[in-house]
């Protein structure tokens, strides 16, 4: 029995740029057999990616019945943000101020929840001037990302989801993380696409049109729509699973290898509302 706590010292920036370091810390926390202290004292910037990846890890630590402690950020603004967005409420404290109008509360979902999607749309309505078509696309994205999370991940921790509007950059970042089996295992279990040994290959396969792990069922076009729209707006789709991070840009796919495995899948999208390039309509009806 361990009597001392392992300190997981978070980096200053909990953003997707630091995904290698953050997933390594998540891996360390889950692998340690004693109490864990999540030290946020040096953190000065947090994105939805950082919130959902760490929340998934915290949830797993709780499932492992580990004693978990939290050192809040020294920076008051960051501390207040974590509290506003709901991080404190989920894991540590009970009282929480109303969340900021540019952020969508961090949420743990165990099933598709139309109320959450409605909240996202309210956020869009109150903080950003975007077209009806962009709003529709947002709703569609959140629906598809959550559907994928619940359908394929076999996650015991459900899905964590968070979104944030960045007025200075005029973009929205949405991130969904599950603590499930990951894309490689999911594809391999389905037995439909051969045996993958590399996580980056599995991720690239998963976003191909028509690829689905549903047995004897159709599917596999939801992520295709998400990828196409995100890229069309000049945004970015990033998928992290196992030890791979794959960025889908307009003209290239960038693969990065992480030093540690993330147990599950994180899908992050950066969308630039109003920047969609209108495609020729395909009229059938």
């Amino acid at each position: 029995m361990f009597s001392y706590a392992k300190i997981i010292k978070m980096p200053a920036s909990l953003t997707i740029t630091w995904s290698n370091q953050i997933t390594q810390l998540c891996h360390d926390a889950i692998g340690f057999e004693g109490p864990i202290t999540f030290d946020f004292s040096s953190v000065n910037f947090i994105e939805p990616f950082g919130l959902v990846s760490i929340s998934t890890t915290l949830e797993k630590c709780c499932l492992q019945k580990k004693k978990v402690q939290y050192v809040p950020p020294q920076k008051e603004k960051v501390k207040a943000y974590l509290s506003k967005i709901g991080f404190d409420k989920i894991f540590f404290l009970d009282d929480k101020p109303k969340h900021a109008s540019t952020s969508l509360e961090l949420k743990r979902l165990t099933a598709l929840n139309p109320v959450y999607t409605d909240s996202l749309m309210d956020l869009m309505d109150t903080s950003i001037k975007i077209s009806e078509e962009d709003k529709f696309q947002m709703r569609l994205h959140i629906n598809e990302l959550l559907t994928n999370g619940f359908d394929h991940s076999h996650s015991k921790t459900g899905c964590y989801v968070c979104a944030q509007w960045y007025p200075h950059k005029q973009d929205i970042r949405m991130c969904v993380a599950d603590g499930g089996i990951g894309i490689l295992d999911s594809l391999n279990r389905s037995g439909k696409y051969g045996k993958f040994t590399r996580h980056d290959d599995a991720i690239k396969k998963a976003v191909e049109e028509g690829v689905t792990t549903r047995v004897h069922k159709k599917g596999g076009i939801g992520l295709t729509f998400v990828r196409k729209y995100t890229i069309r707006t000049g945004g970015l789709l990033t998928i992290i699973s196992g030890d791979a991070k794959v960025n889908f840009y307009r003209n290239k796919i960038e693969i990065k290898k992480h030093s540690a495995h993330f147990g599950g899948t994180i899908v992050s999208i950066r969308i630039r509302p109003g920047k969609d390039v209108i495609e020729p309509r395909k009229e059938i009806f």
């Binding site: 529709f136 569609l140 629906n143 598809e144 559907t147 599917g219 076009i221 939801g222 729509f225």
Partner: peptide, 8 residues
Amino acid sequence: ASVSFMDE
């Protein structure tokens, strides 16, 4: 606003 629903 759901590809999954419309497709199925």
